[in-house]
């Protein structure tokens, strides 16, 4: 029914639109008398949190399903969840560890150092990307059922955590056995390994906060999605994933910014828990920073996401 069609003489007749608008006072009264709630208004923060809490089973099922669906269309299936990060780490170990040798300066066990860095950074990167796509890629779900949209970024990151679980085991195994090679420093299994769990936990909370932030930004401005991979690349090189920040960037006056930014802090925490690197001793300040960053990003991210609640699904 374009204007052009209606313009020709034989156009079928449509009754004129009903020019009817209820007056605001009677709408308000009717809504009150019948106990109606307005649709499409952002819920208040506390009821929103409560609603979110009642949906925790939904979050869990969504996350596990997503993690499963990820590698479903391949012959090797779920094994890719392990192969991909191993291959990824292998490339970095060969190029930066053995050819360029930047991963060896100030590091005793280069293989374990790079493997831990790549596995953990990959988790963070994929979590942020999952968050970025959480609203737009689930438009079908968003447009057919009403639920707190914060479910989507949370489930997206949780799916990555699910995938990370088995990968962590592989990461620990590789790190441990790399210690037997003559060229590398040993890795011992000790009580510090237990610190891996709180370190990954903090990183997970931090990643969820980041996912909230980018989820809102990308939902409103889809262009940002194209910038994200580049931002991630910059972040990778400024977080010491494949080389020691202290050795290469510590000499600059701004080196401390790079050293104490959240991603570098979490990599430090995981490495200090697993490896015996003299440059990465367990450090209380770093743990405090890790808790702080996680709390700040989770809170700010959640509030930022919630403030856009009524706009998701609009396109």
């Amino acid at each position: 029914m374009t204007v052009g069609e209606a313009g020709s003489a034989a156009a079928p007749e449509v009754p004129a639109p009903l020019e009817r608008v209820f007056d605001q006072a009677s709408v308000d009264r009717a809504a009150r008398e019948n106990g109606l709630d307005q649709v499409g208004v952002r819920p208040r923060l506390v009821p929103y949190l409560k609603d979110l809490w009642t949906r925790r089973a939904f979050i869990k099922v969504l996350a596990i399903s997503k993690a499963y669906a990820e590698n479903q269309n391949t012959y090797l299936g779920q094994l890719w969840a392990l192969f991909s990060p191993i291959l990824n780490a292998t490339v970095y170990v060969i190029i930066f560890g053995f050819i360029l040798k930047v991963g060896r300066e100030g590091i005793e066990n280069t293989i374990a150092f790079i493997v831990v860095g790549v596995f953990m950074f990959r988790f963070f990167e994929r979590s942020v990307m999952a968050g970025a796509h959480s609203v737009n890629k689930n438009m079908n779900l968003v447009r057919s059922v009403q639920f707190p949209r914060a479910v989507l970024p949370i489930a997206g990151v949780l799916a990555e955590l699910t995938v990370l679980g088995p990968a962590l085991v592989v990461m620990c195994v590789i790190s441990y056995f790399s210690g037997f090679l003559p060229i590398a420093g040993t890795v011992t299994i000790d009580a510090y390994w237990l610190l891996l769990f709180p370190a990954v936990g903090l990183m997970w909370i931090f990643s969820t906060g980041c996912a909230f932030l980018v989820a809102r930004w990308v939902a409103i401005t889809p262009d940002l999605d194209n910038l994200l991979p580049h931002i991630m690349r910059v972040l990778m090189y400024s977080s010491g994933v494949i080389f020691s920040i202290d050795r290469y960037l510590g000499q600059f006056s701004w080196g401390w910014i790079v050293e104490y930014q959240p991603v570098a802090v979490y990599l430090y925490l995981v490495r200090s828990a697993l490896l015996n690197e003299p440059a990465y001793p367990p450090d209380g300040t770093m743990w405090l920073l890790g808790v702080g960053w996680a709390a700040v990003f989770a809170l700010v991210g959640f509030v930022v996401f919630w403030r856009g609640e009524e706009r998701y699904g609009r396109d």
């Binding site: 649709v39 968003v142 447009r143 057919s144 009403q146 706009r311």
Partner: peptide, 25 residues
């Protein structure tokens, strides 16, 4: 009406959360 696409203007009031069922969903 289901609250899945925010209105540009105007209001929708409902008694409880509606459920939408579409073949495209």
């Amino acid at each position: 009406i289901a609250g899945l696409i925010p209105p540009a203007s105007g209001t929708v009031h409902v008694a409880s959360n509606p459920a939408l069922l579409g073949v495209n969903a």
